[in-house]
Nucleic acid binder design. Structure first.
Length: 423
RNA sequence: CGGGCCGUAGUAUACCGGUAGUACGCCUGCUUUGGGAGCAGGUGGACCGAGUUCGAUUCUCGGCGGCCCGACCA
């Protein structure tokens, strides 16, 4: 893609209404446009990153579930059926539900903030025999929540991207088996997103759904709003919310001996057990012809929040440093002395060859000086910069700079392609 | 939702009870071209409402919006 065709520009200064590093850098780089507190539009660069993250999530989820897309609107009836219309904290409902539908009491639908009420009837319709189970559906969708205090850029928004997966099982054992599978799947996803080594399964409170613990995936992050008690040797952590004398005994863990660190919740997995199947009277027929309640689990992961966490963790004073797996492009090609026709032709040829090799290239074709191009390149944070200029032309090679380390090398085009294949 | 701070061009910031200045951006032209260029000219602004006042961007009140702390948080 030509940088002149991105239709965004970088900013030299951070917006004054953002303190969070992720929001500052993503706005400065032209990835995001802020609409209101906790609500951002994704611009061309930002959308590419989001799609890379969601692509990885999708690839892994496809191994253990089927993708669907549920509606954002839903009728009130199923919410009345589970009792959540009134039991769930009203602040977590959307404005649509609070002010339009409920206050006026004249609407029969709401903008839903979670999807158990929709997925359970769907699963019920198609899976009524023990032969049909287990099944798992997932979606990647924009979620809306009336967050009372949106903050920290992409880390806590009123509108955000979420992958939610729901599984249905004939009994608790099968649910547990699948639950472990999702744990592994999540770890693979975070590894591929290159935050895996800093992401820990964390015991947390069960919330509405269970008296037992739920599991969160917490990534170490100074800007994160959770505090976890970390046991690095066993690669497990405990959310501050469950720290108590009682749980210390129950889990046989000395919390006082553990490291306390800030972290951001990037995923969570919940055993729902029979809460929702009971509400919808979702039973299946077993081998003996008897009706049995279905066991459910739900599993969330926030791609847009992950994007914010990656920026928080991997940026430096010059800008963002994307891991290759989520970077908007593989290579940032910087053309200098654009008025020199030979340089221009050389850049064009390199661009063509890289594209042909399947490399994703952002070509800075703008009529700008070197300093500005380098500064923008550092800010945007594409993993590899390749400079084409009179200097490199006379050397017969290209200058190649790794964003993360600043390591520079002069390479030929075949060496460059080899390098990109290798990474 | 409680508390604190804040709201001035596209962005970041000054000043002021007498309708606003700077920098960057943007536009024109010339020069320049490996780390955010120089010169010249130009463009563009007080969140909304009420009150005080001869006069309000400035003071007061209310609203709306933003950030932070706390509470909350499938």
């Amino acid at each position: 893609m030509l940088q002149s065709q991105l239709f965004t520009k970088t900013r030299r200064e951070a917006p004054k209404d953002e303190v969070a590093k992720n929001a500052q850098l993503l706005i400065r780089g032209g990835y995001l446009h802020k609409e209101m507190a906790g609500v951002y539009s994704f611009l061309p660069l930002g959308l590419r990153v989001l799609q890379k993250i969601e692509g990885i999530v999708r690839e892994e989820m496809d191994k253990i579930g089927r993708e669907i897309l549920m509606s954002a609107l839903s009728p009130l009836e199923p919410w009345k059926q589970t009792g959540r219309l009134n039991s769930v904290d009203v602040l977590m409902r959307t404005l649509g539900a609070n002010e339009l539908s409920l206050a006026k009491n004249d609407s029969s639908y709401i903008l839903n903030y979670s999807n158990e009420e929709l997925i359970t009837p769907i699963a019920q319709q198609f899976n009524q025999s023990y032969k049909d189970l287990p099944v798992a559906y997932y979606q990647i969708q924009t979620k809306f929540r009336n967050e009372v205090r949106a903050k920290s850029g992409l880390l806590r928004g009123r509108e955000f991207r979420m992958k939610d997966l729901y599984s249905f099982h004939r009994d608790e054992e099968d649910l547990k088996r699948y639950y472990e599978k999702v744990k592994d799947s999540y770890q693979t996803i975070f590894d591929r997103l290159e935050i895996g080594t800093d992401t820990f399964i964390t015991l947390a409170s069960g919330g509405d759904f269970t008296l037992d613990f739920s599991h969160e995936f917490q990534t170490l992050c100074d800007a994160g709003e959770d505090i976890i008690y970390l046991d690095r040797t066993h690669k497990i952590a405990y959310n501050k919310e469950i720290i108590s004398e009682e749980n210390s005994k129950k889990l046989n863990v000395d919390f006082a001996a553990l490291e306390q660190v800030h972290a951001c919740e990037v995923g969570n997995i919940f055993p729902l057990n029979i809460k929702f199947s009971k509400a919808f009277n979702y039973t299946y027929t077993d081998e003996e012809g008897k009706q049995q309640l279905v066991y459910m689990g739900c599993y969330g992961l926030g791609p847009s929040r992950v994007m914010g966490v990656i920026v928080e963790k991997l940026s430096d004073e010059k800008g963002i440093v994307w891991p290759r797996s989520v970077a908007p492009f593989d290579v940032h090609m910087i053309e200098l002395q654009g008025s020199n026709e030979e340089v221009k032709a050389e850049a064009k040829e390199l661009y063509r060859e890289l594209i042909q090799e399947g490399v994703e290239v952002l070509w800075d074709d703008r009529d700008a000086r070197a300093g500005e191009k380098f500064a923008d390149s550092d800010l945007i944070g594409i993993p590899l910069r390749v400079v084409v200029s009179e200097k490199t032309l006379s050397a017969g090679k290209f200058e190649c700079v790794e964003r993360k380390t600043g390591k520079t090398a002069l390479v030929s085009i075949s060496e460059l392609i080899g390098l990109l294949r290798h990474v």
